[in-house]
Every structure is written in C-alpha cells, then in structure tokens.
C-alpha cells in the first residue's frame, strides 16, 4: 500500500517538476497531463474511484485539450525561448526561495501535528450515495456550480472569439499608425 503511494508520488511530483522546468511548452503540457493522471491514481489509491474518474474526465480529458489548444494557438515562431534574460534568472531564484519557505512552513506544521490514529477501514461511498448526497443535501450548490460553469464557458467563448469591431477600429486609432497584421 505504502510503496504504491511512493510510486504514485514519484510519478506525480516528478512529472510536475519536469513540466515546470522544461523550456519546451508542449513537453510541459504533456508532462502536466501525466501529473494529473498521477493525481487520479492517488484518488484511486485512496479509494475515491468516483473522484478519480472525474479527475480523469475533467483534467486528463478536457482541460488538457484546452491547454494544448492554447499552446498551439499562441505558438510563436519558436516554442523554445532561447534567450534567458537576467530578470527571469532573478525571478526564478526568488521563486525557488519563496516556494522553499512555503514548503518548510507547511512541512513543519504537518510534522508537528498529531492526527487521530488512521481510520482502520476506508470509508466507502458508492456512486449511488454520492449521487443522492449531491442531489439532496448539496442540490443548491450543484445548481450554482452548473450556473458558474455555463457562465464561465460562455464568457470564455466570448473572450476568445475574434472581435470583428476590434479589427476594424484599429486603423482608425489616430495616435498610432495602422499596424500590419499578418
């Protein structure tokens, strides 16, 4: 049980760290998909099958596609930015320091806490129970989440859609010379 957890953690953390370190965006995105799959594996390990399937559907299935599309749509001449500016070096250094401090604070808090002894048996939650809980106790929240999703997706569509007015109004911008858009 515990060795499996270590394997999963290795997969999850290793691919996440590699994704954040690599310079090739597509590789990063693909590695993140692996990392999300690792999170799903963790849920399976912990006995939360339903959540694991939701994770696979939403992250590995849907969000990954959106991410890959975003990467491809915003691709410039080269995916790998070769020039490393001094500013970004400094930022990376502070980023690692800050992240390490946060990690230290968290770890100290976790290690100094004594939890109740672990539950001997895994709590079970069948799909039926989850469905009933969602629809009865959390029915209102479910509705709101549905609304949020609808609004967010509509908003995303509008944001990402090509704005015809914007293209037409650009040349009439008096202060700037008309830009040549490829």
């Amino acid at each position: 049980m515990i060795p499996a957890l270590f394997l999963i953690a290795l997969l999850m953390l290793g691919s996440a760290a590699a994704a954040m370190l690599l310079r090739n965006l597509i590789h990063s995105a693909l590695l993140l998909i692996v990392s999300w799959a690792g999170v799903a594996a963790f849920y399976l390990w912990a006995g939360a099958e339903f959540v694991a399937f939701a994770q696979i559907l939403v992250y590995v299935g849907a969000i990954s596609m959106v991410v890959l599309f975003a990467v491809l749509l915003t691709r410039q001449n080269q995916i790998i930015d070769t020039v490393i500016e001094p500013a970004s070096r400094a930022r990376a250094a502070t980023a690692f320091t800050v992240a390490a401090c946060v990690a230290a604070v968290f770890s100290a808090a976790i290690l100094s806490t004594k939890f109740h002894p672990a539950a001997p048996e895994a709590p079970t939650a069948s799909v039926k129970e989850i469905g009933l809980t969602l629809m009865n106790e959390h029915g209102g929240a479910l509705l709101i989440v549905g609304l949020i999703l609808t609004v967010a997706l509509l908003g995303a569509t509008i944001l990402a859609a090509t704005d015809r007015d914007e293209d037409q109004s650009q040349p009439s911008d008096a202060a700037l010379p008309p830009k040549e858009t490829p």
Partner: peptide, 17 residues
C-alpha cells in the same frame, strides 16, 4: 502578476511565522 503572487506567498510565510 508575478509580483502580486510573490507578495501573497511572502505574506503567508510571515503570517504563519
């Protein structure tokens, strides 16, 4: 945006300490 995020993280550390 990086700066804001950094401030949040540092503030968290300071608060925790």
């Amino acid at each position: 945006a990086h700066g804001y995020l950094r401030v949040i993280a540092i503030a968290f550390i300071v608060l925790a300490l």
